[in-house]
């Protein structure tokens, strides 16, 4: 399988940056590799687009991975991984609520913390803490993409170097 992906190692985690279209495929592969414990889904406003950060742990050897994917403000949607890890259900709803990222295929994508009728997403950088949209806010240019790396991670590659677990 050819996944558009970049790998790096930060502290004790493997970090995968993936093309949003391949996000779901990479998650399925990680699930097959035994990453069974969802820690969190974070969301970031990068200035040029929105980022989803999924963090997973493998309970058997305590390996940690982080999956990042960037989407533009116009799209602002990725595939849901709730069926792979039911524990991300509220994290995805929170990311939708506060950051405005939609998750395709989520079973119950409603606002989690804020009022249901509201149409703003306060963690976006164009939202001011005073409670209004900054009038002259413009998105930044998309950074030049670094080339996607090959090959895609496999079972052996995904194991952490140096033995993280006990």
């Amino acid at each position: 399988m050819d996944l558009r992906i970049k790998r790096e190692r930060l502290f004790d985690e493997d970090v995968y940056t993936v093309h949003p279209d391949d996000y779901r495929a990479l998650c399925e592969q990680l699930k097959k590799d035994g990453f069974d414990y969802p820690r969190a889904i974070s969301s970031l406003d990068m200035g040029y687009g929105l980022r989803v950060v999924l963090q997973l742990t493998r309970m058997s050897d305590l390996a940690k991975v982080e999956v990042r994917t960037d989407v533009s403000y116009d799209v602002a949607a990725v595939d849901s991984v709730t069926d792979l890890w039911p524990g991300v259900e509220w994290h995805e709803r929170e990311a939708y609520d506060l950051m405005g990222i939609s998750f395709r295929g989520h079973p119950d994508l409603r606002r989690l913390l804020l009022e249901e009728e509201w149409d703003l997403h306060p963690l976006q950088k164009r939202y001011d803490t005073g409670g209004y949209l900054i009038p002259d806010w413009r998105p930044a240019d998309w950074p030049d993409p670094a080339p996607w790396q090959e090959p895609a991670p496999s079972q052996e590659d995904a194991a952490p170097e140096g033995g993280e677990g006990e």
Binding site: L98, R111, L112, L113, L114, P122, L123, Y127, T129
Partner: peptide
């Protein structure tokens, strides 16, 4: 249903 004590720490 949660969110009745929401203060948005993360934005502050």
């Amino acid at each position: 249903h949660i969110g009745y004590l929401h203060r948005n720490h993360e934005k502050i």
